[in-house]
Design a protein around this nucleic acid. Structure first.
Length: 219
DNA sequence: ATCCCGAGGG
DNA sequence: CCCTCTGGAT
């Protein structure tokens, strides 16, 4: 295998070729909406979140509206996303802090975002990139973790350690899109259960597919 | 390490 | 049945 710094350029080039418009599948129109949608997306498909959010954003158009929400009512509205008690509590708690400490506007820095309840680096990175077009880091979710490990970009399990490994090899100009590129590829081919290595355009530079090639199952 | 938690796929 | 879905707090 080539050293990571060399391979990463090829990987990103091939991913960009295949996924020319990398972006989140979550539907949103402003930073507050991508924040709420990302909180809801924990351990839940984007598709399911997108079924909930249109009605939610109509009913709660601002942080102040979420801050005033009846918790039990909100729990029922987001129930199908799972973890609904924690998520409702965090959405209301984050909205209240946004109103009280940030003048009603979702903060646009990592340091401020991670002070919101229910928001850690993954969610903050998504809000920064999708909501503000900024990148202070790279979001490491279940897809980014799985693909980073399969591609040999990190051996760690802990998302924060994986992010450090990624930040060390991914050129800064690619930080903004890198998570979305991995997620799109994770959904299209590199699924958790049955990755489609035989038809994957990365198979020749992927250690995981390489194992199949050497085993004679692939070429 | 454990808990939160519903829904769909295999 | 078990695994997975863009995690975070205790």
């Amino acid at each position: 295998m080539e050293p990571a710094p060399k391979r990463i350029g090829r990987i990103i080039g091939l991913l960009r070729e295949r996924y020319p418009q990398p972006r989140t599948a979550l539907e949103f129109q402003n930073p507050l909406q991508i924040l709420v949608a990302t909180i809801l997306a924990a351990q839940c498909t984007d598709e399911r979140v997108n079924r909930i959010t249109p009605g939610l954003f109509r009913k709660y158009p601002t942080a102040a509206a979420f801050a005033r929400a009846d918790r039990t009512e909100l729990e029922q509205e987001i129930r199908s996303a799972g973890f609904f008690r924690n998520k409702a509590k965090n959405i209301i708690g984050a909205a209240r802090r946004i109103v009280e400490e940030f003048g009603g506007a979702v903060p646009d820095s990592m340091a401020a975002l991670v002070t919101l309840p229910g928001v850690a680096r993954k969610t903050a990175n998504i809000v920064l990139s999708a909501g503000y077009g900024k990148a202070e880091g790279i979001a490491v979710d279940t897809h980014a973790r799985r693909l980073s490990r399969r591609l040999g970009l990190s051996r760690h399990e802990d998302p924060e350690k994986i992010e450090r490994d990624l930040l060390a090899v991914v050129p800064k100009d690619d930080w903004l899109d890198f998570n979305f590129l991995l997620v799109e590829h994770g959904r299209a081919l590199c699924q958790a259960r049955k990755p489609k290595c035989p038809e994957c355009f990365l198979r020749r530079i992927c250690p995981s597919a390489e194992a199949l090639i050497l085993g004679g199952k692939l070429k």
